[in-house]
Computed example of a mutant assay.
Amino acid sequence: MFTGIVECMGTVLKNNPYDDTESGGQGVSITIGDAGDILSDCHIGDSIAINGICLTATEFDTESFKVGISPETIKRTNVASWTQGAKVNLERAVSQDVRFGGHYVQGHVDTVAKIVSRKPEGNSIIFGFQLRDQEYFKYIVEKGFICIDGTSLTVTHVDDLSNGGAFYISMIKHTQDNVIMPLKKIGDEVNIEVDLTGKIIEKQIILTLENQISKQDSTLNTMITKIIEDKVKTYLDK
Rank of each mutant, 00 (worst) to 15 (best):
G68W: 02
K233Q: 09
Q106G: 09
V28Q: 08
Q216M: 14
S170K: 11
D110N: 08
A86Y: 02
I213F: 14
V88M: 00
K215H: 11
K233A: 06
E135F: 04
D230H: 10
G165R: 08
L55D: 06
R76S: 02
M171V: 15
S81E: 15
S29I: 05
M171Q: 15
D46S: 09
S29L: 05
S117A: 08
D61M: 00
I213R: 10
E193A: 04
Q204H: 11
I213L: 12
F129E: 00
G45I: 03
V28G: 03
F129R: 01
G45K: 05
L153F: 09
L131H: 01
I169P: 12
V141K: 06
K66H: 12
V141L: 10
V232D: 10
D149C: 12
S162K: 13
D46F: 09
I180A: 07
E22P: 03
F129V: 00
K231E: 13
S64K: 14
V98P: 01
D177N: 14
T175R: 07
T56C: 08
S117W: 03
T83L: 14
K199S: 02
L220F: 13
D110L: 01
V94Y: 00
T31H: 00
E22L: 08
I228A: 07
P17S: 07
P182S: 12
T219P: 09
G27W: 10
T222N: 03
T234A: 13
Q176E: 12
T11E: 13
F167Y: 14
H43I: 05
Y136I: 00
A93I: 00
Q204K: 14
G107I: 02
P17G: 03
T197S: 10
K233D: 05
V94M: 03
G150W: 04
N211I: 04
L161D: 13
A35H: 05
T222C: 01
I169K: 11
D149V: 07
T111I: 03
I48F: 07
A57C: 15
G4Y: 01
N211Q: 11
C8F: 01
K66M: 13
G52Q: 12
G164W: 09
R132N: 06
S40F: 14
H108R: 02
G25T: 06
G187R: 11
V79I: 11
I186E: 14
N51Y: 06
Q134N: 09
D188C: 07
T111C: 03
